[in-house]
Amino acid sequence: MPRENYQARLDELRADVVAMGALVGERYETAIEAAVTGDAALADEVVGGDHEVNETYLALEDDCTDLLALQQPVAGDLRLVTASFKIITDLERIADLATNLAEYGGPDGGVHPAIEFEGLAAAAGDMVADAVAAYEAGDAEACREIAARDDDFDERCRRASEAVVRGLLDADGGTEGLEASIDEASRGLLAVRDLERIADHAVNVAARTLYMIENDDDLIY
Rank of each mutant, 00 (worst) to 15 (best):
Y57L: 10
L58T: 12
A59C: 08
A59G: 07
L60K: 08
C64M: 01
L67K: 00
L70G: 03
L70F: 11
Q71V: 09
Q71Y: 11
P73L: 05
P73G: 03
V74W: 06
V74T: 15
D77W: 02
D77A: 11
D77R: 09
L78V: 05
R79N: 03
L80T: 07
L80G: 02
V81C: 00
T82G: 02
T82K: 03
A83T: 08
F85S: 04
I88E: 10
I88C: 01
I88A: 07
I88S: 00
T89N: 06
T89S: 14
D90L: 03
L91C: 02
R93Y: 05
I94T: 06
I94E: 04
A95E: 00
D96K: 01
D96L: 05
L97R: 09
L97A: 03
A98T: 01
T99F: 00
T99I: 12
T99Y: 02
G105E: 09
P107A: 15
G110P: 01
V111I: 11
V111A: 11
V111F: 14
V111M: 12
H112W: 03
I115K: 06
F117C: 03
F117T: 04
G119N: 14
A122Q: 13
A122D: 15
A123V: 04
G125C: 00
D126F: 05
D126T: 10
V128Q: 07
V128F: 05
V128L: 07
A129C: 06
V132Q: 08
A133E: 15
A134Y: 10
A134N: 09
A134R: 00
A134I: 02
Y135I: 01
E136L: 04
E136S: 13
E136N: 15
A137S: 15
A137E: 08
G138T: 12
D139N: 10
D139S: 08
D139W: 00
E141A: 09
R144A: 12
R144L: 14
R144F: 06
E145K: 09
I146Q: 02
I146D: 01
I146A: 05
A147R: 07
D151P: 06
D151C: 09
D152Q: 10
D152A: 13
D154W: 14
E155D: 15
E155T: 11
C157E: 03
C157A: 12
R159S: 10
R159P: 04
A160E: 01
A160D: 10
S161F: 12
S161T: 05
E162N: 15
A163S: 11
V164N: 08
V165G: 12
V165K: 11
V165F: 10
R166S: 11
R166A: 14
R166C: 04
G167M: 03
L168C: 09
L168V: 13
L169A: 13
L169W: 09
D170P: 11
D170C: 10
D172I: 14
D172V: 06
D172W: 10
D172E: 15
G174T: 03
T175H: 14
E176L: 05
E176C: 01
E176A: 12
G177D: 07
L178I: 14
E179Y: 03
E179F: 11
E179W: 07
A180S: 11
S181K: 06
I182Y: 00
I182R: 04
I182G: 06
D183T: 11
E184V: 03
